[in-house]
Write a protein that binds this DNA or RNA. Structure first.
Length: 568
RNA sequence: GCGCCCGUAGCUCAGCUGGAUCAGAGCGGCCGACUUCUAAUCGGCGGGUCGGAGGUUCGAGUCCUCCCGGGCGCGCCA
């Protein structure tokens, strides 16, 4: 490991890239002063990447192609000129460089040049892959936020896995990220919930009550009714209607919310804040939002209702009602007030994770917030696409929060297991309309990719146990120059960048791809390279590689909230 | 009709911030490998005009336009 500029640690990969970059700049200067190239502006971003195909070298630069336009020459010609002026001696361990393709300069380094990364990983320990890119900036991530009118389902499961993994990734790169759940515990739906519970309670007493039209007919309210009766009897039924409904609605909300929290906890998803709509309404925030929007001239009275004039903005395709004819607010008013309140709490960035079926509401909320003077550019709305259920190879109906066809998250976890469920959802981008094969999920034991990765971890643990018993030290006693070792080292070296990309790109699914590649390379290494029984220096070096690989696998799995078993 | 998302191998999906050395993985199919650190593994074979057509560029799966196909929204429901 090389220390440069104070305490900043530069990895062997970064250091070698920097050396290539510097050598290229020197070559360019030499070429210009020799008159081989016209004076050109040096591009700010000279990419020094790692080619996928190993026959293309270890590092690759696109500088010549960037200069092709400005210098009026072909990329290949510029590359040849640069190569002529290039002093490969400036790059440690550089055996040769060559021109390839449309003008790439490819650099071939000595075998095993990435070996030092093993010590970097082991020295950094759990901190390897973490960074302070976020600079302790505060991010609030709101997700799941399901209505407290029923159990969570598979769609919520997708959002939960994504939001939680994203938060873990953001924290890993130095953001102060907080998880928030917004509880819609007010409004017409909650009243209907109370009425539905009342019907169930009456049914318990043998009355011929019916769950009202537009209510919640799910069987789960029968359980809630029994729980209520056990705790409080049925005296509430003799109260006046408004007291009756409010009491039962509140009970149902608390009961269902507790169930939601329990299943989320089981799914390893925890929230820092549960913010309730009733709390937002309590001090008149919705009224103030409407007043200000009226004062700002962004509203219009029409047909007895108050409308937000969003259509004129070109960002929404219709105006939206704020206050209904009956005088009550639509759900979007407390929604706007809630977002205003989130801004007021002083976060540097707000992230909302919603289902695609709510995307139509986003423009109105954004516009209202913008008009109210909030910095909406700091609000990111991420939409998770729908999940299509497939059973017996056929469409088993779409899953939406409002559709009747859903699988409860609790049952889903019983079938599939937490690790596979999390991994399964995190393998795909949230933009994908994913097919969820119920049969495959049920049978997933060996086919699920999560086991492939976990197995690599368990295999390493087995080696570590036996090597420990054999007294083999894990130290860099030899250069790791076997092709399988080199590929594995490369995975270790790119891990920090991968974590950062996952966090900043809001794309934790990148880590599942990374894990697969790393596990695959370990399995290949396992078959091709033995640890125990090799001559001592090589055994020690390979053992260190195993330790470093285990550490990175465990770290990446941890960012996804998936366990890293020591035995399987 | 309008808005958002998607269209890549038989199936399910990757392909990072405005392109290059990007056509991939897994599963399924076929053939091989357990007396040595876990075979939940490894090696090999076959498989795609990247929905279509234009455009920008030295270069497009990736960017722009249009078209086709699918999903979801477009409630004084949330």
């Amino acid at each position: 490991m090389i220390r440069a500029r104070g305490t900043r640690v530069v990895s062997v990969l970064e250091a070698r890239r920097a050396a290539v970059r510097e050598a290229l700049h020197a070559a360019l200067a030499a070429a210009v002063s020799a008159g081989d190239l016209p004076t050109v502006e040096v591009p700010a971003q000279v990419a020094v990447g790692e080619p996928r195909d190993r026959s293309h070298g270890d590092l690759s630069a696109n500088l010549a192609m960037l200069l092709a336009g400005p210098s009026g020459r072909k990329g290949r010609d510029v590359a040849a000129i640069l190569l002529r002026h290039l002093e490969t001696g400036r790059i440690p361990g550089c055996a040769r460089a060559e021109v390839a393709g449309p003008g790439f300069l490819n650099f071939f380094l000595e075998p095993g040049w990435l070996s030092p990364v093993v010590q970097e990983v082991l020295a950094a320990g759990d901190a390897y892959g973490r960074s302070d890119c976020g600079g302790s900036r505060r991010i609030l991530v709101e997700f799941v936020s399901a209505n407290p009118t029923g159990p969570l389902n598979v769609v919520n499961c997708r959002a939960a896995a994504f939001g939680d993994a994203l938060i873990r990734c953001l924290r890993a790169i130095g953001y102060v990220a907080e998880a928030e759940y917004y509880v819609n515990d007010a409004g017409g739906q909650v009243r209907k919930l109370g009425l539905s519970l009342e019907a169930r309670l009456r049914q318990l007493r043998g009355e011929a009550a019916q769950v009202p039209e537009g209510g919640y007919p799910g069987a789960y309210l029968e359980d809630v009714a029994r729980a209520y009766a056990d705790a409080h009897g049925d005296a509430v039924l003799r109260e006046p209607e408004d007291v009756r409904v409010a009491t039962l609605a509140e009970y149902a909300v608390e009961h269902l919310l507790a169930e939601q929290r329990a299943v989320l906890e089981r799914f390893r998803v925890s929230f820092d804040h549960f913010v309730r709509e009733t709390a937002i309404r309590e001090h008149g925030a919705p009224e103030r939002v409407v007043e200000r929007l009226v004062q700002l001239g962004r509203t219009q009275e029409r047909d007895g209702a108050l409308w937000l004039c969003t259509k004129a903005s070109n960002e929404d395709n219709d105006d939206r009602v704020l206050r209904k004819r009956d005088g009550s607010f639509t759900y979007r008013v407390p929604d706007i007030a809630y977002h205003a309140e989130k801004f007021d709490r002083g976060y540097d960035r707000l992230i909302d994770i919603y289902g695609q079926d709510h995307h139509g509401e986003v423009p109105a909320v954004r516009l209202a917030l913008q008009w109210l003077g909030y910095p909406v550019e700091r609000l990111e709305v991420l939409l998770t696409q729908m999940v299509r259920l497939v059973r017996d190879g056929r469409d088993a109906g779409r899953v939406s929060k409002r559709g009747g066809n859903f699988i409860a998250m609790r049952d889903f976890l019983d079938d599939v297991g937490v690790d596979p469920a999390r991994y399964f959802f995190l393998m795909r981008t949230i933009d994908t309309h994913m097919d969820f094969d119920i049969d495959l999920a049920r049978s997933q034991t060996q086919d699920n990719p999560v086991y492939y990765v976990q197995y690599a971890h368990a295999r390493i643990c087995s080696i570590l146990r036996q090597a420990g018993a054999a007294g083999i030290p894990g130290v860099p006693a030899a250069v790791l120059d076997h092709p399988a070792e080199a590929l594995l080292c490369h995975c270790l070296a790119t891990y920090p960048a991968e974590v950062r990309a996952a966090a900043e790109g809001r794309a934790p699914h990148r880590l599942t791809a990374y894990l697969r590649t790393t596990a695959e390379r370990f399995h290949t290494f396992y078959v091709q390279c033995r640890v125990i029984g090799e001559e001592p220096a090589r055994a020690a070096a390979r053992l260190a590689l195993c330790q470093a690989t285990r550490q990175v696998l465990a770290s990446a799995l941890g960012l996804l909230g998936v366990s890293a078993p020591e035995r399987m």
